[in-house]
């Protein structure tokens, strides 16, 4: 134990500490939004920060995605073959730009990742209507920087998992008992900054485009 630690704790413990009345600390649901309302709110919020939102379904999303890849002139797409969405994509290889799996540790292909990948597609574990946010828990199949380094990020959100608020999502998905992953993320639009004279610019360090497909 360091001396600094000892001293800090000594000082913190030396003083009487007031009891705090914790009334009002817990989550209070304030909106009563049905699924259609949640989808509407989510879409509005995402579009307000220049994210693309496409409403689709289990039958047509694959075609939609293929069309979007063509329209954006993508030459490759980083996508895991091991997710529900990835499996479907890899079955239609011909419809898509070159598919690339994040199958090695980053050190083995960092240059390619940074400079040659046009776009990525990831799944999400949920969404938040109030703020227009995607919830991502990166995995071994869909690692952390898939949603960060490529200039275009496609994300698929099953609207069954579109919650009203962050608090509700955390509670419904029981994050506490699941145990927190290495990294959990909320993503609410493409990367942006207003650091130059308060003028909003997109694509600072993360993706310039965020494309959300709602199923």
């Amino acid at each position: 134990m360091s001396e600094a630690r000892t001293h800090i704790f000594q000082r913190l413990r030396a003083v009487p500490r007031p009891e705090v009345d914790t009334t009002g600390r817990d989550y209070v649901p304030i909106y009563d939004w049905d699924r259609a309302e949640r989808i509407k709110r989510f879409t509005e919020r995402m579009q307000a920060v220049r994210a693309e939102v496409h409403h689709s379904d289990r039958d047509s999303w694959l075609n939609l995605l293929a069309d979007l890849c063509k329209a954006k002139g993508l030459t490759n797409l980083l996508v895991s073959p091991h997710t529900e969405w990835g499996q479907a994509i890899y079955q239609q290889v011909g419809e898509f730009p070159t598919l690339q799996d994040y199958d090695r540790a980053i050190e083995a292909w960092k240059h390619e990742m940074f400079y040659n990948i046009d776009a990525s597609l990831t799944s999400t574990v949920g969404g938040i209507a109030e703020t227009g946010s995607l919830i991502l828990w990166p995995t071994e199949q869909e690692p952390r920087i898939m949603s960060l380094v490529p200039p275009v990020h496609f994300a698929i959100l099953d609207t069954q998992h579109l919650y009203t608020t962050f608090a509700e999502a955390m509670q419904e998905q029981d994050w506490l008992n699941q145990g927190m992953p290495t990294n959990a993320l909320l993503i609410s639009g493409p990367s942006k900054s207003a650091d130059i004279a308060q003028v909003l610019a997109y694509g600072v360090h993360g993706p310039k485009e965020l494309v959300v497909i709602l199923i």
Partner: peptide
């Protein structure tokens, strides 16, 4: 309403 990224490590 929220920042682009909320990063929990």
């Amino acid at each position: 309403p929220i920042t682009t990224y909320f990063n929990m490590i």
